[in-house]
């Protein structure tokens, strides 16, 4: 029987805006999972990216605020200059701790904290990027029993990040951007999964 997932985490760097449009754009309004995204971005970038993506997606896209409850069918973007983390009570938190893997927000930080909370019910996706942030994070997703998806480096604007992720862990799916939304819909069909309430999500 297919397991029921509770959240999707996405890490992306160079070429991220186009990639996120392509991946998130086709997801339907009743997509049942929350989507947490780290896109590498400059410290003074403002919140324009969330607005831009919100305009071209059916799903609601917002910049994450601290203590946001993680809701299904909503996309949360890490704010510029802050790490985005998941708390055990299913809320989001932010940190201004030093850069991790040369980045803030860092994909590794999001993935590791989400893996600790969602365990096997997490889907981790590493997309295009010209660094290796996300590879430790995706490894952590796998170690906690989650599912790992990587954008096919052949079609990626920058191959290094997907390649580093594939070298770091055994990946479940290597997919073109074009096929990624369809794969997510297959993995997370219609029914809404409740966010975790206290303790580990998979107890």
């Amino acid at each position: 029987m297919a397991r029921s997932f509770q959240a999707v985490v996405i890490g992306v760097s160079t070429g991220g805006v186009q990639a996120l449009k392509k991946l998130l754009g086709p997801l339907p309004a009743d997509f049942p999972l929350p989507v947490l995204v780290v896109q590498h971005i400059g410290p003074d970038a403002g919140s324009g990216l969330a607005r831009l993506l919100d305009e071209c997606c059916v799903l609601r896209v917002k910049e994450a605020d601290e203590q946001d409850a993680i809701l299904p069918g909503t996309v949360y973007l890490a704010p510029p200059n802050y790490h985005l983390l998941v708390e055990q009570d299913g809320c989001l938190s932010l940190s201004a701790d030093p850069h991790v893997s040369f980045a803030r927000p860092s994909v590794d930080v999001l993935f590791e904290s989400a893996a600790a909370v969602f365990g096997p019910r997490l889907i981790g996706i590493v997309l295009t990027g010209a660094n290796s942030d996300g590879s430790r994070g995706l490894q952590s997703v796998k170690q906690h029993g989650g599912l790992a998806i990587v954008q096919d480096p052949a079609g990626a604007e920058a191959r290094q990040m997907p390649q580093a992720a594939m070298a770091a862990t055994s990946v479940d799916h290597v997919v073109d951007l074009d096929g990624m939304a369809a794969l997510l819909r297959k993995l997370a069909p219609g029914r809404t999964a409740a966010p975790p309430k206290g303790g580990r999500a998979y107890d």
Binding site: Q88, D97, V109
Partner: peptide
């Protein structure tokens, strides 16, 4: 303290 960050630290 918020758990996720204190755990990292």
């Amino acid at each position: 303290y918020a758990e996720a960050s204190i755990r990292r630290r």
